[in-house]
Design a protein around this nucleic acid. Structure first.
Length: 854
RNA sequence: GCGGAAGUGGCGGAAUUGGUAGACGCGCAGGAUUCAGGAUCCUGUGCCCGAGAGGGUGUGGGGGUUCGACUCCCCCCUUCCGCACCA
């Protein structure tokens, strides 16, 4: 009882907060709201590691601080629980993924609760539970109703061995990243969401979001808006023609050939007999390579084949050859381009390789060797008929006008953003609320038919004839009726993104049985005020969620056009991994550093000889140290529960913040907890004597008072701006300043309050010892006293010619003359002034004096 | 290649935004205390010279602006993270 017993204190307060409902979110219309949100975790089988609590701790500090500032705080938590890993585990262990997922969630919950977060546990959600996913289905119906969900034949990554489509990021070098099975491209009927209809708004509304610049830029690039024109080319000897998209219609007179993507529908019909063999072979080869594969190969050299056909340039009637090449993508623009080798680097590389004409249509001030490289920049138009003499900026609109007037094309805005492939041939996801009629109609179910519950299946794998796992369900599920007609259920499921697209909305009203959330709840909580999560979600999750949010906004269901007002990315916490020369990984707890005892070993990473002074404990096996992501593969995970047991949750939370700026990538070092733990012990000792009794209070001193108010000021500013590391230093300085003296009661109380968001258990315990019988969670946040920050004596640096020569102590109110006199009187300053003339005297009040002599 | 972030002691990191570089902590060294300690307390700790006073030097490298630069400007190098034939 007399020493700092973190285990006793922490379980005591965790139980009390839960029993008293201290952090249950309330909706008090007379108070301002604050919605704090961390990206919810995927409940993996390996549990949380110490990297996860970083963002939760940051959010928790802000949430507790806002509460103490009078806000009604929403600080919810839940689980993103559909997804592949659970499905694979289910296949392996032959158990239902729901069972596995619930077990994983139970461990996550246990870990999270031991960390003392002020989460609104009464609002916990899990995206794989029917209570939740029925509303995901409900929102899908809204999208469908608004014409934003459709079935389409699209090229996908099909893995024959797995019998399913794979996401692009699961395919590398034409193989499935997990098993190495080959992947091919295939056209399949898939559910798509028309996110492209929102491209412009998704771009425009980035303006005004308080998000990291990097994330905004990534979203802009992903949406990829460009302005240009579509131009129609006729084909000599054919009735058909094709349309190209170009951002440089001003270079139309410089087009010396055209290129169609291998998948372009016109390729087969325009290819001449003489070229057919070569073109077919080329198209075949392209079809069997994944998009990523094609890109990798293309980095080395461009490939392509002449079709034998000629296109007619509408501006001058010239006939130019039409090629097929995979550097043109079917998925962007029209799948066809006009090539201007003189002014486009890619076209230039291609033209050079195949000996095609390079024709400049801009003249520059300086010489340029067009046979060597393209010139994509400014110039004065030449060889462009009536347009000669114009600049790029003048020619673009002029030629678009001409094209439109002559019906050869029109101005066009294009986006890289593509519609979202929204179906998966998986078991562990939301079933689509869709049925198919006997005559091939695709019909959405009425909301009264929701939920469509995941059926029982005999195996979590595709059927033998390659249909999705849900096709294994009994006829009683697969076959149903709609308006008396027999219908068959859709057997695709939704991707993992679906549940995370709107979970932040469900938190506002998680138990609603009639709606995904009530108008009142969303009106009160509104958008998320602070959203913290990893950069890995900078594009997809955040773009998808913004898209759904805008659809719901258009449907009048949410009050704001954007979901997340302020976004903050925490930096990943890395950990050192230790590997011996045989390639084996040793956990950080099993190795030690032996300074001065270096060994040479062959690195299992680089195969090169490296020096090290790290060894496996109780052995002479040298290991190489390297920083990496925390996880199973590097055997360097640290379980927060181990840290909690040894040091306590308060130490863990505080150390995570103390490591460095929140946004920075930082290496975890368990020994770093020692410093924080010592600080908390000293804090305890400051209040409690060896017998466990509260120490008597003393008189405040200027020094302690100043340290306290500096700490209050910096903690307040730090939490507001998410600079959560330096306030801890200020609190340490405060405790150091109290050394050997008994602080005043008033100062102690203020200190406990500012400590509480960081180390809530210890703070509550001390608050209670101070005689309070209610939680400090609702105490008003202390304000600093500006007057307390000043000192009566200040130390001033004295420089001569910018070099520090002495320090002097003067009264804070000393005049400039007095300071200068004192400075000049310093013996070590006099030495440097001797025989010299003072040319300039610079005095920065309270800081320094610089005497410039010459 | 394009875009973003960042380079400070043995280590994690501070620096009021142009004013004493290295706060705070880890580690290390010396000392005190303890039956013991992943315990506690005190002192020291950028590097070089010096017994000391003190001096020199120092924020990836090189220039520049300034009385004064980690901070502002120009050039270069390195690392990390996105994107990558988007016409």
């Amino acid at each position: 009882m007399s020493s700092y017993d973190h285990q006793r204190i922490e379980s005591k307060w965790q139980e009390r907060w839960e029993a008293e409902g201290t952090f249950v979110a309330t909706e008090d219309p007379s108070r301002p709201k604050f919605y704090a949100l961390c990206m919810f975790p995927y409940p993996s089988g390996s549990g949380l590691h110490v990297g996860h609590p970083e963002s939760y701790t940051a959010i928790d500090i802000v949430a507790r601080y806002k509460r103490m500032n009078g806000f009604c705080v929403l600080n919810p938590i839940g689980f993103d629980s559909f997804g592949l890993p659970a499905e694979r585990a289910a296949q392996r262990e032959n158990r239902h993924p729901a069972e596995i997922t619930r077990e994983n969630i139970a461990y996550f919950r246990k870990q999270l609760k031991k960390l003392g977060f002020s989460f609104n546990w009464e609002r916990e959600i899990s995206t794989c539970e029917v209570d939740y996913y029925r509303w995901t289905q409900w929102i899908f119906l809204k999208l469908h109703e608004r014409g934003l969900a459709y079935l389409a034949e699209v090229p996908v990554n099909w893995c024959p061995a797995q019998g399913t489509v794979l996401a692009n990021e699961e395919v590398v070098d034409g193989r499935y990243i997990e098993t190495g099975d080959p992947v091919e491209r295939r056209n399949m009927s898939q559910w798509m969401l028309k996110i492209t209809a929102y491209a412009q708004r998704l771009l425009d509304d980035l303006e005004g979001l308080d998000w990291p610049e990097g994330v905004l830029e990534m979203q802009r690039q992903w949406i990829g808006r460009s302005e240009g024109a579509e131009v129609r080319f006729a084909i000599a000897g054919h009735d058909e023609g094709f349309v190209v998209y170009t951002t440089r219609p001003d270079t139309l007179f410089g087009a010396t050939y055209c290129v169609l993507a291998p998948e372009h529908p016109l390729v087969a019909s325009i290819t001449t007999e003489a070229q057919r063999g070569a073109v077919d072979a080329y198209v075949q080869r392209a079809a069997h390579r994944s998009e990523m594969d094609r890109q990798l190969a293309a980095e080395k050299e461009k490939t392509g084949v002449f079709t034998g056909a000629f296109a007619i340039n509408p501006v001058n009637g010239e006939q130019i050859p039409v090629w097929v090449a995979d550097y043109v993508l079917m998925t962007y623009g029209t799948g066809a381009i006009m090539a201007v080798p003189a002014h486009d680097e890619r076209d230039h590389a291609f033209a050079k390789k195949f000996g095609l004409e390079i024709r400049p249509v801009y003249q520059m001030d300086r010489d340029h060797d067009f046979s060597e490289s393209a010139w994509p920049g400014e110039g004065t138009a030449i060889g462009s008929g009536a347009f000669d003499g114009m600049s790029v900026a003048e020619l673009k609109p002029a030629i678009i006008d001409w094209l439109e007037a002559h019906k050869h094309g029109e101005g066009k805005v294009n986006y890289k953003l593509r519609d979202w492939l929204f179906s998966r041939q998986r078991y562990w996801g939301e079933p689509f609320p869709i049925v198919h009629t006997a005559d091939g109609q695709v019909v959405p179910l009425p909301t009264s038919e929701l939920p469509v519950v995941l059926p029982h299946v005999d195996a979590y794998k595709p059927t033998d004839d390659g249909r999705p796992p849900l096709a294994r369900a009994d006829a009683s599920w697969l076959q149903t009726t709609l308006d008396g007609q027999p219908v068959t259920r859709e057997t695709n499921t939704m991707p993992q993104w679906a549940g995370s697209c709107w979970y932040y909305l469900r938190y506002t009203d998680p138990h609603n049985q009639d709606l995904p959330f009530s108008p009142e709840a969303i009106q009160y909580w509104g958008d998320v005020d602070l959203y913290i999560g990893g950069v890995e979600h900078a594009v997809l999750h955040l773009l998808y969620a913004r898209f759904w949010h805008k659809v719901l906004y258009d449907a009048g269901l949410v009050p704001t056009p954007e979901p997340f007002r302020k976004l903050f990315n925490q930096g990943m916490i890395l950990a050192y991994a230790y590997r011996d020369s045989s390639g084996r990984y040793h956990h950080p707890d099993t190795v030690e550093q032996r300074p001065g005892q270096t060994s040479i070993l062959v690195s299992a990473w680089s195969q090169e000889s490296v020096q090290t002074d790290w060894y496996v404990k109780d052995s002479d096996t040298p290991v190489e140290q390297k920083l990496g992501k925390m996880g199973k593969s590097l055997n360097n995970s640290v379980d927060p529960l181990d840290v909690v047991e040894r040091y306590g949750a308060d130490t863990l939370r505080m150390y995570e913040m103390f490591m460095g700026p929140l946004e920075q990538v930082k290496p975890w070092q368990t020994s770093g907890c020692d410093g924080i733990h010592r600080f908390l012990r000293r804090t305890w000792r400051l209040f409690v004597d060896e017998q466990g009794a509260l120490r008597p209070f003393g008189q405040t001193s200027d020094e302690v008072r100043r340290a306290l108010h500096v700490a209050i000021k910096e903690t307040t500013a730090g939490i507001e701006s998410l600079k959560l590391n330096t306030p801890i230093s200020r609190m340490m300085e405060l405790v150091n300043a109290c050394k050997g003296s008994l602080p005043a009661r008033e100062d102690c109380e203020a200190f406990v309050l500012i400590l509480s968001p960081y180390a809530p258990h210890l703070a509550e315990e001390l608050w209670e010892l101070l005689g309070h019988d209610t939680s400090l969670a609702d105490q008003p946040w202390p304000e600093h006293d500006e007057a307390a920050l000043t000192t009566s004596i200040v130390t001033i640096a004295v420089q001569v010619n910018g070099k520090l020569r002495a320090r002097i102590e003067v009264g804070a109110d000393a005049t400039k003359e007095a300071v200068l006199a004192a400075a000049r009187a310093e013996p070590n300053v006099e030495r440097y002034l001797e025989g010299k003339q003072i040319r300039k005297e610079i005095v920065v009040p309270g800081r320094l004096v610089n005497l410039v002599v010459g």
